[in-house]
Amino acid sequence: MASSETREKGSEDLAGLEAGLDALETPATTPERPPVGRILVSKVLPPVVAIVLVLAIWQGAYWADVKRDDALPSPLDVGDEFAEMWRQGTLFEYIWTSVSRGVLGFVIAVAVGTPLGLIVARVKVVRAAIGPVLTGLQSLPSIAWVPAAIIWFGLTNSTIYAVVLLGAVPSIANGIVSGVDQIPPLYLRAGRMLGASGLTSVRHVLLPAALPGYLAGLKQGWAFSWRSLMAAELIVQSPSLGTGLGQLMDGYRAMQNMSGVLATIILILVVGVAIDLLFFSPLERRVLRGRGLLARTT
């Protein structure tokens, strides 16, 4: 009796000691979100300054008459071109045509590239057979596929999607391969000890562990999709296809409208950056922060 009483007392002491240790070892306050003003100064100001600088240099080159005015229009001329597209109400139609193609192509590329990458990563024979090819394909400019795709599919959407897929699938597959390669073996062993095997192990251990590398691959896959799409749209033209940004740009080229060409380049750039900034970057940051791999920066 006496001994059980002392043990209970000892156990309470221990609980208190442990609570004290835990309290000492965990940070007292969670870092707060920096104030909006600081975010503006540290995150928004630098790119704005950079853009203003580029515009200033451009305007300077225009004034200095580096090229004839029709070959090098001023930023304002290009701005007028935007205003014109806006008035015609066609701006968003062009963007939407391209973005919807790009997103659909990207989604198909993810659906194809993910299982492909998993198989390459996990099956030795397959890796030996097509691993190097995948890496090689990644460095092949996707515009090189356009002639072949036109011969196969003619001037159709299939051609455009084929080029996008050939551009994006290798980089997505390679992303998941390197994601899987970077998994610490300890996680796989821990999963095995808990009883995960086969598909259960893929679902509960392999995929989540590979997620950071996979996301980097997806991000790059999107860049490749968008790039390949523009290459395809520049060349594959047909009235039945609808006008995307690439076709728009080629139209301006045919009319020798340099302002239009520049305006379209800016649009392509802005869309590519926007999708990265609005979708991939937040996703990546969330995943990394959840695992403690990213400190909150100020």
Binding site: L186, Y187, R189, A190, M193, L194, G195, A196, T200, H204, V205, P208, A209, L211, V287, G290, R291, G292, L293
Partner: peptide, 26 residues
Amino acid sequence: ALMFQDHALFPWLTAGKNIELALRLR
């Protein structure tokens, strides 16, 4: 059951979900 020298907890799960995964696999 094996407890590793490095805790080997899965960083993509919370503490509780790590345990729940073990329960689920059981």
